[in-house]
Every structure is written in structure tokens, then in C-alpha cells.
Design a protein around this nucleic acid. Structure first.
Length: 459
DNA sequence: TAGTCACCTG
DNA sequence: CAGGTGACTA
């Protein structure tokens, strides 16, 4: 679905309360519709004047660049993928075993099958972990990987399954060097460090990406991914086999998917966790196994945001100075650090809808105020940086006042104010759909969002 | 039917 | 700012 400014120009719609029949109708801001719905005689009489008025004032306005947005299937977020993986694991496990009690009695009566069940459980767990790790990596263009002995590495595999009495480690043949920790808990923690890049205004020097150039963002190391994946797989297999099938069934039921994304929280890293209560693990594990951590695999990764943060909101507000009707493509370009989904897209669109709402409310308010004050000439209506209207807008979209509002926005605000003034003075506001003509004008006044907003550093 | 819009409400 | 709603388009 496209939502280019061009489309908005022809498809801007609004609800309209029509008294006839008590029904609520909606009309489209459309050239044809506009004529058809200008049912009031006074409106027709004033149309010619208005058209001249508009032509005179908008001749300088560039045509809106119609940026087509290719349809993209909503991508599954790492969290969703992870949850799905777990759900599948849970479902398949449930299919195999109708509850822990029956499993236990089954094992007791069929000891020779315990081995088989253990293998099945091992397989299920391995698959779940494998898919989880895969899904996470697939959705992470930004990743800090250097797991081949670099002390500065940001991926740390904190293993997890340590040595048992036989001295064997779960990752004895792994390519990955892991610390020797005594952990038996089953937990996959993928921690996301801050990537909600602070939106820094006006070319403030940007810290370089911690891990090389931009090229690396688009070319994550598949080899490292695979190494980590294999490591997680081996560890999970080992953990399963050591816990034992019956105990693991209980363990499976105890697994909680903690995936909390706080769109408000900028500071706290978001964590995807499948964890097991250590006490439960302790009760399930062999007596000689000491549990020190609930982490089986802990990986620090740079990944896409799954939620919009306050910085994103701030950035969106500043974008509003340039575009009132951003297309989906523009949104994706400017919020490239966000894992786009239908929900995220809707939220961004909703933000701009709210911005417009405030914008138009202010315009109408000040236009009416001007009429009340006796302003007789539309040319007397201007929007300057010192004007009260601008201060109200600036306070809303640029509260910190740390952004230099472009002159183009002042022009748009002035045009909008005059549009409201003219419409109200002509009595058009008696038409329930009177604003749609204004929306149609304003949606054409969008300008390109500066590259600064699309920069990888300023997201 | 999904996506988008303006409007209303909390 | 978000949720709900009705209306419209592709």
C-alpha cells in the first residue's frame, strides 16, 4: 500500500457528520468530489474567487514528488520469530507428551523408551534453540561479531554447560572458545545494546559506529553467525541430555519467554530471554551440577529496534517541519534503525496524524482569532518566528528549541493559516467537509526531508 | 480486505 | 499520544 504524498493529495479523506439520515459519511478530498460536495450555493459562488486565490498563491509550489513505495511483506521481528519458535517447540512437545504425569508413568512403565524420548526431547530443544538463534541473526544487520579470539569481541558466549564429572564439556569440539563456567541453566539471552541512536541536531559530531564502517552493517558475518548458532545448538543438546527427558518436560513447561520491549525506554537495553528459574533447574539437575547462572548463551548484538523510542518521536516531530504526509518509503528511510512491521508503520502514521491534528487545530484557532480581531486582509496574516502561532507550533514539535525550523515550514504555516482564514471568512466552515479543501492544498506542500534525517548516524 | 485518513475521546 | 470508529481507495 502506498502512501505517497501524491496519493494523499487525491485520497485524503475525512469523516463528515451529515445530518441527513443521521448517518456519518466520509468524503474524499478529491478534485471531483470537492466540486460535487460543495453543495452550498455560497460555496459555488466563491469557488471562482477561491481558485484564483489558490492559483496565485501556489504557483510557486513545486509538484509533489510522487515516491512510490514498494510493498514489503511485514517482517517478523526477532522477538516474534523467537516466540514462534518457542511456540512451535511447545506445541510439538505437547503433541508428543500429554502432560508430565503421563510422561512420567510412561517412562516408569517403559524404561527402554526413555532413551528414545530423551532423543526426541533433545531434538526438540535443539531445533527450538537453533531456530531462535537463526531468527535473531536473520533480523540483525548490525552485529558485532568477532568470536575468534579477539579480546574486544562484543559477542561473548558465556557457556553455560560446563564440565561434568567426566570432565567433558559440551563444547569440547567447538570452534568457539568459551569460558569455563559452571552453569547448567538453560537460558538464551540475546541482549540488544543501545541502538536507539540519539537524534543529534545540526551536524553535531557523531560517534563512529562501534564496529567498523557501514558496509559491515549490511554484511553480517554469516560464518560467525553459524559458529554461534552451532555453539548454542551443542550446548542446548548437552543441557537436555544431562537434565533428562522427564525433568526436561517440567523444565519445558517452566520456560518463560521474556520479551519486553519498552518503546518509552531509551536507556534500558531490550532483552530477549528464554530463561528457566535457576532454583527449578537446580532441583532438576544432577546433584553435582552447580547452577550459577540462568544463562546458557548470552550474546550481545547490535540489532534493529523493535519499538519506537522517545528519540524516534522527537525525530518524527522534527520531520514534520518538512513533511506533513510522509510516505511509507520516507518513514522507512528515516527510521532505518527500526524493524518495520505493520504495528510500527501504523504507529508512525498515527504520530503524523496526531501532528497534523494539532497543526490544523492551531491554524483554525488562530485564523478565527484573526477574524475576531478584525483582520480584514489575508495579506495581514503572516507567520513569523516571533509570532505567537509559531511559538505554539515550535513548542509542540521542537520543545527543546534545539532545531532550526526551516523557512519552508513558516511558509506552509502561513499558507495554511490563510486558507483557514479565507474559508472561515467565506462561511465555508458551515460545510461539514470544509477542511478537506485545505488538506488538499497542504498535502502538496511537503518538501523533501533532508539527508540528515536519513543518515545512518542520525537515526 | 488492508491500508490510510480525519475525527473523537480519554 | 493512543485507541476506537467510520469511510474511502486500491
Amino acid at each position: 500500500m502506498t502512501s505517497s504524498p501524491g496519493m494523499h493529495c487525491t485520497n485524503v479523506t475525512r469523516n463528515q457528520c451529515v445530518k441527513s439520515g443521521g448517518m456519518r459519511e466520509k468524503e474524499t478530498i478529491h478534485e471531483q468530489d470537492y466540486v460535487e460536495t460543495s453543495g452550498f450555493g455560497r460555496q459555488r459562488a466563491g469557488k471562482q474567487l477561491e481558485n484564483q486565490h489558490l492559483r496565485a498563491r501556489f504557483d510557486h509550489v513545486d509538484e509533489v514528488i510522487d515516491t512510490k513505495d514498494e510493498d514489503e511483506p511485514p517482517e517478523k521481528s526477532p522477538r516474534d520469530a523467537f516466540t514462534d519458535s518457542y511456540s512451535e517447540f511447545q506445541t510439538s512437545s505437547s503433541r508428543e507428551y500429554q502432560g508430565r504425569k503421563s510422561v512420567m508413568s510412561y517412562f516408569q512403565s517403559q524404561p527402554e523408551r526413555i532413551k528414545l524420548m530423551a532423543e526426541v526431547l533433545k531434538y526438540e530443544l535443539s531445533r527450538a534453540v537453533s531456530r531462535s538463534v537463526d531468527s535473531i541473526f536473520k533480523s540483525m544487520p548490525l552485529i558485532q561479531t568477532n568470536i575468534e579470539g579477539n579480546a574486544e569481541t562484543d559477542i561473548r558466549l558465556q557457556s553455560s554447560v560446563g564440565e561434568d564429572e567426566s570432565g567433558l564439556t559440551c563444547c569440547g569440539n567447538a570452534e568457539v572458545q568459551v569460558p569455563d563456567v559452571q552453569t547448567e541453566a538453560l537460558s538464551l539471552v540475546v541482549q540488544k545494546p543501545r541502538l536507539e541512536n540519539e537524534f543529534v541536531l545540526h551536524h553535531r559530531p557523531q560517534p563512529p559506529l562501534l564496529f567498523g564502517n557501514h558496509d559491515s552493517e549490511d554484511q553480517p558475518s554469516e560464518r560467525n553467525h553459524e559458529a554461534v548458532r552451532q555453539h548454542a545448538l551443542r550446548c542446548s543438546q548437552n543441557a537436555c541430555s544431562r537434565v533428562g527427558p522427564a525433568k526436561f518436560d517440567t523444565l519445558r513447561n517452566s520456560i518463560k519467554v521474556r520479551s519486553k520491549v519498552n518503546s518509552r525506554s531509551v536507556r534500558s537495553p531490550q532483552t530477549h530471554t528464554v530463561s528457566v528459574d535457576p532454583t527449578l533447574m537446580e532441583s532438576l539437575c544432577l546433584p553435582h551440577v552447580k547452577i550459577e547462572s540462568d544463562c546458557l548463551v548470552k550474546t550481545n548484538l547490535y540489532m534493529l529496534n523493535e519499538g519506537l523510542t522517545t528519540n524516534h518521536l522527537k525525530k518524527a516531530k522534527l520531520m514534520f517541519f518538512y513533511t506533513r504526509y510522509p510516505s511509507s518509503l520516507v518513514l522507512k528511510m528515516c527510521f532505518h534503525d527500526v524493524q518495520f512491521s505493520r504495528c510500527i508503520t501504523s504507529q508512525l502514521i498515527k504520530w503524523f496524524s496526531n501532528f497534523r491534528e494539532f497543526f490544523y487545530i492551531q491554524m483554525e484557532k488562530f485564523a478565527r482569532h484573526a477574524l475576531i480581531e478584525g483582520v480584514s486582509d489575508v495579506r495581514g496574516l503572516t507567520v513569523e518566528r516571533q509570532s505567537e502561532l509559531f511559538r505554539a507550533l515550535n513548542m509542540h514539535y521542537n520543545k527543546a528549541n534545539d532545531f532550526q525550523v526551516p523557512d519552508s515550514f513558516l511558509e506552509v504555516a502561513e499558507i495554511t493559516l490563510r486558507e483557514f482564514y479565507i474559508s472561515i471568512s467565506m462561511g465555508k466552515d458551515r460545510d461539514p467537509s470544509w477542511k478537506k479543501a485545505i488538506y488538499k492544498v497542504i498535502c502538496k506542500l511537503d518538501s523533501d526531508v533532508p539527508a540528515q534525517f536519513k543518515s545512518h548516524h542520525s537515526a
